[in-house]
Amino acid sequence: MSSTDTAPALPADVRVGVIGVGQMGADHVERIARRIKGARVAVVTDYFRDKAQQIADSVPGCRVAESPEELIAADDVDAVLIASPGAFHKDQAIACIEAGKAVLCEKPLAMNPEDAYAVVEAEKASGGQYVSLGFMRRFDREYAELKDAIDSGELGEISILNCKHRNATTLPGFVDSMMVYDSAVHEIDAIHYFLDEPIREVQAILPVPGPRAAEGQHDPMLLLFRTASGRIVTDELYVNTDSGYEVRTEVLGSQGIATIGTEVHRVTTQKPGGQWGGSIPADFRPRFIDAYDAEVQAWVAAVADGTNIAARSARAWDGYLAAATCEAAEKALTAGTFVPVTVRPRP
């Protein structure tokens, strides 16, 4: 290149606004500021103004907006990450769509199927693609490899999926419905992701509660799903194991069986007397930190190139399917039989 040639300008960093800087939002701010390439946190907002200011002060060049509406409309925000309580997601996601700004919304998309469908309709009416939903497992290495194995036909015809979702403890007030909406929702999205077909019906089986179950809580719990093609999926939920965080998926195919999530012991030790042991993550964040990083990095890259939504990302329609399935699963807690999943036509 001669001295008279002009080098192409490097693309500017995507300026991200973060709505809600509680546990998840603060994690995302740290992620974007320290580990994500091509983006910076430009604006944050939170109901607790002092918390928002504290987070903004930790990131060079970041400021505080007085409200989500102000942040979404801001000229120095190119894309929005929503980490506010779920009750606000619908209105905030629609505001982002109307502003023409890409949004990565933590789950749930909305608190009920009707509100989730409203987001789907708003995006359709806009004529663009703006909404990515934060089902981070789609970006986990093991999940991605299993998805590719299923899609390639390597495992043959899939007949059964067995899922397990275990937590060490739950907070007070974590009732059965929260086991559906906070825990099983991830397996529900994984079913749609792996099998690429909707769930038609769901049944809940409630065993005798375990020794650490809270009063009125059925823990462990088993959910049975039947998909459109007749495949069966089991989801074992055990949220008070007093040990750690584990998620596993086993796929039974006509040409093989595949299992992910077994490598929970990152380091194992051998001790005198034949004892051995290791460590299990205390919660979901250490287990899926790489998936969260990959999800946000892919989203930033999609925003930068104008596509707005990464290839593996869950979309608004996936959020609606999850909401509709969770509603049926909640009804199944007391139905004692399979409950159909009611899904409206895709716009």
Score class of each variant (00 low, 15 high):
156 G>E: 09
243 S>Y: 02
262 T>S: 15
56 A>E: 07
68 P>L: 10
187 E>S: 11
247 V>Y: 04
255 Q>M: 10
2 S>T: 13
343 V>Q: 07
333 L>V: 04
262 T>G: 15
305 D>S: 13
341 V>W: 08
207 P>S: 11
6 T>D: 13
186 H>Y: 08
312 R>P: 04
96 C>N: 00
98 E>N: 14
98 E>Q: 14
267 V>R: 12
331 K>H: 09
272 P>Y: 09
70 E>I: 04
9 A>Y: 00
211 P>T: 06
341 V>A: 12
136 M>S: 15
148 D>M: 02
290 D>M: 12
102 A>Q: 02
191 I>M: 08
66 E>W: 00
33 A>H: 14
208 V>Y: 09
36 I>A: 13
163 C>Y: 09
318 D>G: 08
333 L>R: 10
206 L>N: 07
284 F>T: 04
222 L>R: 10
50 D>F: 04
218 H>C: 07
166 R>C: 12
278 G>D: 13
331 K>W: 00
147 K>Y: 08
162 N>E: 15
92 Q>T: 03
317 W>T: 07
104 L>M: 11
90 K>E: 15
80 V>A: 05
312 R>L: 11
227 T>S: 05
52 A>D: 00
205 I>F: 02
270 Q>S: 14
149 A>W: 00
224 L>H: 08
91 D>I: 04
175 V>A: 10
204 A>N: 01
121 E>N: 08
256 G>I: 03
162 N>Q: 14
168 A>D: 05
213 A>L: 04
127 G>D: 10
69 E>L: 07
111 M>K: 03
